[in-house]
Nucleic acid binder design. Structure first.
Length: 488
RNA sequence: GGUACCGUGGCCGAGUGGCUAGGCGGAGGUCUGCAAAACCUUAUACAGCGGUUCGAAUCCGCUCGGUACCUCCA
């Protein structure tokens, strides 16, 4: 592997050269959605960013096992482990079985991810399917003395843990500060300290999602599923754990604590976190009620949207920012992305008909080097895209005869575009294609009539044809080689 | 209040000591019956004030402004 991939490790707050624990195998775990609502733009971001990582690692020759969980239980509705399970709340409101809600939103999530052209993870485990593993993990933590029972529930003893290990090493928090700053919240009497978190919660009688355990009829704490499933499918220590920045604390912090408490060592070598998507500079999120779901983007049905946006536009928009930077949403930015992406595709198609020369005035190899350099630099996709734009410009110049490329270089350019644009960035040209012979023939006839009208200077007829077709979202382009048409 | 991060041209967004980022939009041009599309060229920048340095958007300090996490969240 001549490519030196570096990734930013949240744990060390530095970029580090990526070296797998057991090459050529790589284990990566990414926190997936809680399936009680439609996925929004934020879910798209983490889905896409870790898809890029998955694709690139595979390209580099690693055998990657990519695990992304579905949280379908145990996610508490509000504060302090005393709230109501999110899935259950939604189920009660809709008069549905909890698992019906889970199925519905899981399917929609999958559909959205497919539209965004994200590859499927290798394994997609559900929390509800791993209750036994979670109970086993709790037992271990209890055995090792880092948990205590209270009223049928089990809590993680953060203070004791911090004594032997270090709670807060991922998020840079100190326990003394947590002590000072934790607010007074109701329903915490069972806990020794406000920052202790639930490993197992006893279900109250109203609670319909519950499982038997040695302690009570109940359900597992939120942080547990990732610890249990990561361990099960990737081992006690694995390479990469990813997720949104908002999960850094307390979720990932607690995962580290659970692993140490159970196994005595850290679970993960590289922690990666993608930044948030903002609207007018503010985080897009459920609590702020300013999120736009992916389905709303795809259909255009949302008051903040002026039109429908294609999944690839969303993907390109997201990839134009580095994953660790906040990304501000606006329809203008989205439109700019749409146009820019179109330009890249046009250049790619141009390569098919480019006239080769005896010599090349452009060095394709340097574009390639820069693209790899950018990918290796903590997945700098905006830099990759900038390089592809440069390449597109070069292709256009060759097309206009101002620069030249040999046949061999044209092939290289094509391979380069294909590799980065389609295989690694995972974009695809979604232009509506209707190449049925009938349409082709009809369009050919219409264009012929229009051409004849133009030759007779009957511009009224020529323009009428153009205008009528425009209503069908068919665009006529008069080029030097004659009129061409395409769907908008 | 604690912790972390950020402030780049009309908009989005890379870069982090000296070398054009890029896209959208604007302006000019090529093409065209007109238009659209496409292509080419081009202008506009590093929040403010100090400091370090031969040299700072990039390092340091202060000020102002903003965001995230500290409670569920991608």
């Amino acid at each position: 592997m001549e490519n030196k991939l570096t990734i930013y490790n949240t744990l060390t707050r530095k970029k580090e050269v990526f070296e797998p624990i057991n090459p050529p195998h790589v284990g990566m775990y990414v926190c997936g959605p809680t399936v009680y609502g439609d996925a929004h733009l934020g879910h798209a971001r983490s889905g896409i960013n870790f898809d890029i990582l998955f694709r690139y690692l595979k390209y580099l020759g690693y055998k990657v096992r990519y695990v992304r969980n579905i949280t379908d239980v145990g996610h508490l509705e509000n504060d302090a482990d005393s709230g109501e399970d999110k899935i259950q709340k939604k189920a009660r409101l809709d008069q549905l079985e909890p698992m019906e809600v889970v199925k519905y939103f899981t399917d929609r999530y999958h559909q959205n991810m497919d539209h965004l052209n994200n590859l499927h993870p290798s394994i997609e485990p559900t929390a509800s399917g791993h209750i036994i593993e979670q109970i086993e993990l709790v037992k271990k933590i209890l055995e090792n003395g880092y948990a205590y029972e209270s009223e049928g529930s089990l809590y993680f003893d953060v203070e004791k843990y911090n004594h032997d290990f270090q709670y807060g090493k991922l998020s840079g928090r100190r326990i003394e500060e947590l002590l000072q700053n934790t607010r007074e919240l109701a329903g915490q009497e069972e806990k020794k300290n406000a920052f202790d978190f639930a490993l197992w919660k006893k279900a109250d009688p109203k609670h319909i999602m519950h499982w038997p355990s040695p302690w009570s009829e109940g359900y597992p704490g939120w942080h547990l599923e990732c610890s249990a499933m990561g361990k099960k499918y990737l081992g006690e220590t694995f390479d990469i754990h990813g997720g949104g920045m908002d999960l850094l604390f307390p979720h990932h912090e607690s995962e580290i604590a659970q692993a140490n408490a159970a196994m005595g060592h850290d679970p993960v070598k590289y922690w990666m976190h993608n930044n948030m998507i903002t609207v007018n500079g503010q985080k897009m999120g459920k609590s702020l009620n300013n999120f736009i779901t992916l389905n709303e983007f795809f259909t255009g049905r949302h008051s903040a949207l002026d039109q429908a946006y294609k999944p690839m536009t969303i993907r390109f928009f997201i990839l134009q920012a580095h994953y660790r930077s906040p990304l501000d949403f606006s329809t203008d930015a989205l439109k700019a992305a749409e146009k820019g992406m179109h330009k890249l595709f046009e250049a790619y198609h141009l390569l098919e008909n480019l006239k080769p020369s005896k010599t090349s005035s452009i060095e394709i190899k340097s574009f390639e080097n820069k693209c790899f350099e950018a990918m290796n630099d903590d997945l700098n996709t905006p830099m990759v895209i900038a390089q592809l734009f440069e390449l597109a410009k070069a292709i256009n110049l060759v097309n206009s005869g101002r620069e030249s490329l040999t046949q061999n270089d044209i092939e290289q350019a094509k391979a380069l575009m294909k590799l980065f644009l389609f295989d690694l960035l995972g974009l695809k040209d979604e232009k509506q294609e209707d190449d049925s012979e009938l349409i082709d023939y009809l369009m050919g006839t219409l264009l012929k009539i229009r051409q004849e009208a133009k030759e007779k200077k009957d511009y009224a007829t020529a323009d009428m044809i153009r205008n009528e077709l425009a209503k069908l979202k068919i665009q006529i382009k008069d080029t030097k080689e004659g009129a061409k048409w395409s769907f908008l």
